[in-house]
Amino acid sequence: MFTGIIETFGIIENIREEGDNRHFTLKSPITHELKIDQSVAHNGVCLTVVAIEGDTYTVTAIKETLSKTNLGQWKTGQKVNLERAMKLGDRLDGHIVQGHTDQTGTCTEIREAAGSWYFTFEYDPGYNNITIEKGSITINGVSLTVVDSKDNSFSVAIIPYTYEHTNFHEFEVGTTVNLEFDVIGKYVARIEALRR
């Protein structure tokens, strides 16, 4: 489990394919604190550390993960949001995040607003995921509050700290992001679907 509060960045140093799997080696200031078999959220995707060497570590993504997230588009030199799993007893500063991307979305608008930014995203409503006004959403692993919720789109307001300390500052119109919808909302949507 995660909270959606990003700790730091990782920089992709190497990408290696092996069958349908893809191995990503990242350099990060937290590498020395990691352990083999530890779960770390990468742009909101929970991946297992499989190797550590110096200040780099490696994680592996399988075909399923590559097809349902933006990991298949990753390139060397790219910044990735990192968060280690929450510790029992710590404060939950964001919201409950599983590290399981539900689907991807596309950035459709970026608007500056006197020191902050509004980002708008569209997603395929065919997966039956929903947002609600002032509800929670995770974008590339970042816990955020939904504004302007619609059937297949929503916006979020980004403060300067979040803009600088996550990869939001690299987003452009057309950027593909990982979306994890609020776990409570997913259960409500499932119950409603079963009632029909």
Rank of each mutant, 00 (worst) to 15 (best):
V183Q: 14
A189N: 08
Q98R: 11
P125T: 04
A113I: 11
G77W: 01
E133I: 05
E122I: 13
V156E: 03
G126V: 10
L92Q: 00
N129T: 12
G77A: 00
I96F: 15
L92C: 00
L144I: 11
T76V: 14
G185V: 09
I137K: 12
S153W: 10
E122C: 13
T145R: 08
Y163D: 01
V142I: 15
R111T: 14
V173I: 15
I139M: 10
Y118K: 13
L92H: 00
V147Q: 05
T176P: 04
G185Q: 07
E122W: 06
D90M: 00
R84W: 05
I139Q: 08
Y187P: 11
I158C: 02
T106W: 01
A85F: 04
V156Y: 01
E164D: 13
N178S: 12
N129D: 14
E109R: 15
A189G: 07
I110N: 02
S149Q: 09
E172G: 07
F121D: 12
I110F: 03
F119C: 12
G89R: 00
T104W: 05
I132H: 06
F119S: 08
G105K: 10
H169G: 01
L92D: 00
R91K: 07
G174Y: 06
E164I: 08
V97E: 04
Q103F: 05
D148L: 09
L144E: 10
D93N: 12
Y118A: 09
G141H: 09
K87Y: 02
S116D: 07
N178I: 11
D102T: 07
Q98L: 14
E83W: 05
V177D: 08
V173N: 07
S149H: 12
F154V: 09
G174P: 05
